[in-house]
């Protein structure tokens, strides 16, 4: 196995191969140890500056990236679209090039438009890390989800994972599908017909509209939030009806023939996709996911910065 990533940017899980995924996980193992030390910091990226460009709101992803960058001793600058010159009509490439001319080495970007990260990687001279682009991909979330499964079950190969909820608007779902399929897991998506894209089975996954059947089939259930802010239409009659059909409760879990693991990328809408009881139960690994997020992002940034193209003499 190579100890170098095959890509120069992290744009999506689609562009990674299985060796890349394993390398990121192995490196994250070591960073997980680092962030549990009395002093949780290593000097690896001390000569690197990273810009976090968030053109769309985010709390945990932004915090997690910023923490990962600081734990690696990188210099960090933050940018959020509110109150910036984006509102004055500047283009994305111009904004980023302006920031890069202040000698920034890497860009972590979240953007509402699918493909924004790929577009940027083709038009500016910097390492790009996609922190979510519209309903396209959210690669670090998928990596930390898979890493959390690997941590609990040692191996992902052959595990059955169901992703429940709003698949149509979810970049987490798409990245998770790519990631889990590459690692040899079986994947099912479950949700109301209106929130499941047509032809999604062409990605080699199962589709179900019956929550009980999906939960009975799986080892792990990844519960997605209903993204009201992305829904321009009414996709289901009422939240109450959605909860009755697709909300996971303890009563439901107790009816299953075996215990399953519950995951959630956050933020949770307690009482909608999962009940409070489930979120706080032993079966939930939601907070482990958050902890692992920092280790995974450290691994990604470290591995991208260690590419030959980033060598000291060339920058």
């Amino acid at each position: 196995m190579s100890n170098e990533l095959s890509v120069n940017h992290l744009l999506g899980i689609k562009y990674l191969n299985r060796d890349d995924l394993e390398l990121i996980f192995k490196t994250a193992d070591q960073f997980k140890e680092v962030i549990n030390r009395p002093i949780r910091k290593v000097p690896s990226l001390r000569d690197i500056t990273i810009a976090n460009l968030f053109f769309e709101n985010s709390t945990r992803t932004k915090l997690s990236f910023e923490l990962a960058e600081k734990r690696l001793s990188a210099d960090v600058i933050n940018f959020s679209a509110a109150g910036s010159s984006v509102t004055k009509g500047e283009t994305l490439v111009d904004t980023v090039n302006n920031i890069l001319s202040m000698k920034v080495d890497m860009v972590v970007m979240r953007h509402a438009k699918p493909g924004a990260a790929i577009f940027l990687s083709q038009n500016v001279n910097s390492i790009i890390v996609n922190a979510g682009d519209g309903a396209h991909e959210h690669p670090t979330q998928a990596l930390l989800d898979a890493y959390s499964i690997r941590e609990k079950y040692q191996d992902i190969e052959g595990k059955k994972v169901v992703i429940v909820g709003d698949i149509l608007h979810s970049r987490v779902a798409l990245s998770n599908i790519f990631c889990l399929r590459k690692l040899g897991a079986e994947v099912m998506v479950c949700g109301p017909t209106t929130l499941i894209p047509k032809y999604i089975h062409s990605l080699g996954i199962k589709v179900s509209h019956n929550l009980m059947e999906a939960l009975e089939w799986c080892d792990i259930a990844n519960m997605l939030r209903v993204q009201h802010e992305r829904q321009e239409l009414q996709y289901f009659p009422s939240v109450r009806e959605y909860v009755q059909q697709y909300g996971v409760t303890m009563r439901l879990l107790n009816r299953l023939s075996k215990p399953i693991t519950i995951m959630h990328p956050g933020p949770i809408n307690r009482g909608v996709e999962i009940s409070s009881e489930v979120a706080d139960s032993d079966q939930s690994i939601i907070l482990n996911q958050v902890e692992n997020g920092v280790a995974i992002r450290m691994a990604v940034l470290y591995l991208l910065a260690s590419k030959k193209e980033m060598n000291f003499a060339q920058t």
């Binding site: 100890n3 170098e4 070591q30 680092v34 000569d47 470290y302 060598n311 000291f312």
Partner: peptide, 16 residues
């Protein structure tokens, strides 16, 4: 590995 002084100066990264 994370404390080495040859990070970004070698051809291939070292495995931690």
């Amino acid at each position: 590995t994370f404390y080495r002084d040859d990070f970004r100066r070698r051809d291939s990264p070292l495995e931690p």
